[in-house]
Design a protein around this nucleic acid. Structure first.
Length: 517
RNA sequence: GGUGACGUGGCCGAGGGGUUAGGCAGAGGCCUGCAAAGCCUCCUACGGCGGUUCGAAUCCGCCCGUCACCUCCA
């Protein structure tokens, strides 16, 4: 499925939307900064991870090979607090204490939240990266990288650790615009106590000496743990090479994290070529118009939303959450609201209904019970129309991942299929099925590609509620047959109160759970 | 103080010098025992002030407002 399309993305480095041109034509190698696994990931985290997923899907859709690496940070890096109190904790250690005796050690905690993270990843129908390297499994190459930086004169050791010497890298600031040491210093909070032996306030830790840390490794500088920025540079180089096509992450990572990654990586490769050609950053989302924060009560982890209500969640269809996150372009401010989530759930249902129509038509065709096209083949053009719709959907994605536009175009196809309804011929249904598959491969909103791998689905047939509903519907059907519409409507009201909506059609009565977010 | 982004109808959100985004909500219609679902129709906005232009929501300038980062929050 090759095409002449080019994926265009906004490059933070150039401040412009530009075509992505892989170093190896037709093969996109990219890295996306993953989570620190000290708690459940929230919806904002996943807005960023979703961007990487969409890059992978869009690149694949235009016929490129992709090598997609996304790390899992399972080393506790410093919090601000422990700069104040050097014997203090990093955020993983803090999490361990916060959780009491739930985890026997910090590795158990990391394992638990890594597994939870991967569950959420699959639930949201994000494609699995080709490699998900864990920081703790790549400490040796990190130490080697730090050694090389010291040898090359880009780093120096103090009593507290090893620091990158920003002065040795003239391009420092090219990503964020933060170039001046004075300006940066002016903004640094007073309470931050820094290593007094640092040569420049911009210098950042490559290695932290700390023989008391819960996670520590042996290094030429004694026991300690690696700096935050070095893990991404090293793991990216290990799996993708010294120079990559694209590096993605949340907007907060522009500075300092990605600025520092560039400084390290380009100092190590030292050949004048950029570490990453394109830098893509996803904006923070807001919730109901406000910054998402636990104190405001508008903080949502993925599982807060998607877990069944019986398990304390809100029972939101994970694909509806995905659809919501797609409804705003990654680069624009996005206001996450319950209203949008509800609208999205409705849209997902329309896709699923369309898929069901297609499936029915395919079954009819297999049974030799196909409808003949009426008149002069009114459906003959369906395949062409859907091909056009898909082409425009892909165009939208290639235009800086314009997901709202892509969703709007794809929705034309859904309307088309709903409009045909039961008149869909088997031949048309095959075109429609292809379109659904393509659209799902690109946007991931029709069905979850990971279904079957894990994730229990809440199949209505297994629901004890279903039996009760069916019994009531049987009674209602009898009442309707008897012309007792008062009784029939009373039963419908009862079901409505149970969160069930009833749909009568010429083929009988169906029911489903109402969307309630 | 420095750096970067953004301001579109009742709401969410595209587009981007002259011509419909789309969805939700709302109104009307078809269908239905009545509904629901589905289908059809309607609902014309771009923060403010200047400037460029035959013409600006779109380009430029200024202002106002919102968001983010400035040593480890996606």
């Amino acid at each position: 499925m090759s095409s002449d399309r080019t994926l265009c993305l906004y490059n933070t480095l150039s401040h412009d939307v530009e075509p992505v041109e892989p170093i190896e034509p037709g093969h996109l190698r990219f890295y996306s900064c993953g989570p620190t696994v000290y708690t459940y990931a929230h919806i904002g985290n996943f807005r960023s991870f979703l961007t990487a997923d969409l890059i992978a899907r869009t690149a694949a859709a235009i016929g490129w090979d992709t090598t997609f690496v996304s790390n899992i940070t399972d080393v506790g890096h410093l919090t601000q607090d422990d700069l104040v109190d050097p014997s203090g904790e990093d955020k993983m250690t803090a999490a361990l204490e916060r959780e009491g005796t739930r985890f026997a050690n910090i590795y158990d905690l990391a394992r638990f939240y890594t597994a939870a993270f991967l569950d959420d990843w699959r639930a949201l129908n994000l494609r699995m990266p080709d490699v998900q390297p864990r920081a703790t499994e790549h400490v040796t190459p990190q130490i080697k990288a730090v050694e090389q930086l010291v040898e090359k004169g880009h780093a120096y050791e103090t009593d507290q650790g090893v620091y990158f010497a920003v002065e040795s890298f003239p391009d420092y600031g090219k990503l964020s615009g933060n170039r001046s040491a004075e300006d940066l210093e002016a903004g640094v909070r007073e309470e931050l106590i820094d290593d007094p032996d640092k040569r420049d306030p911009r210098d950042f830790a490559l290695w932290k000496k700390d023989p008391d840390h819960l996670m520590q490794w042996h290094s030429p500088w004694g026991w300690g743990f690696p700096g935050w920025h070095i893990e991404c540079s090293v793991m990216s180089a290990e799996y993708l090479g010294d120079h990559i096509d694209l590096h993605a992450g949340g907007e907060d990572l522009i500075f300092p994290h990605h600025e520092c990654e560039i400084a390290q990586a380009e100092s190590l490769s030292d050949d004048g070529e950029p570490f990453a050609r394109t830098w893509v950053h996803t904006r923070f989302l807001q919730v109901e118009g406000e910054k998402m924060s636990k104190s405001k009560g508008n903080f949502f982890t993925v599982r807060d939303l998607i877990e069944p209500e019986a398990e304390g969640g809100r029972g939101v269809d994970p694909l509806a959450l995905r659809y919501t996150l797609l409804s705003g372009q990654y680069r624009k401010p996005f206001n996450f609201t319950k209203k949008t989530l509800k609208d999205s759930a409705r849209m997902i249902r329309r896709y699923q209904d369309a898929a069901a129509l297609v499936e029915d038509a395919l079954e009819r065709g297999a049974a030799g019970d196909d409808h003949a096209p009426q008149g002069d083949d009114p459906q003959g053009a369906l395949g062409d129309r859907l091909r056009d719709i898909y082409a425009r959907t892909l165009d939208a994605m290639c235009d800086d991942l314009n997901t709202p536009q892509a969703l709007a175009v794809a929705h034309e196809g859904v309307k088309l299929l709903h409009g045909m309804g039961g008149d869909l011929t088997a031949a048309s249904a095959q075109s429609a099925q292809r379109w659904l598959e393509q659209t799902n491969a690109l946007l991931g909103i029709v069905w979850n590609e990971h279904d079957g791998e894990a994730a229990p689905t809440d199949d209505a047939a297994d629901d004890p509620l279903a039996e009760k509903v069916e019994a009531l519907l049987d009674e209602r059907a009898q009442a309707r047959a008897d012309g007792n519409y008062d009784r029939a409507d009373a039963i419908r009201d009862e079901l409505d109160a149970m969160g069930i909506e009833v749909m009568d059609s010429s083929d009988g009565t169906t029911w489903r759970k109402k969307i309630d977010v």
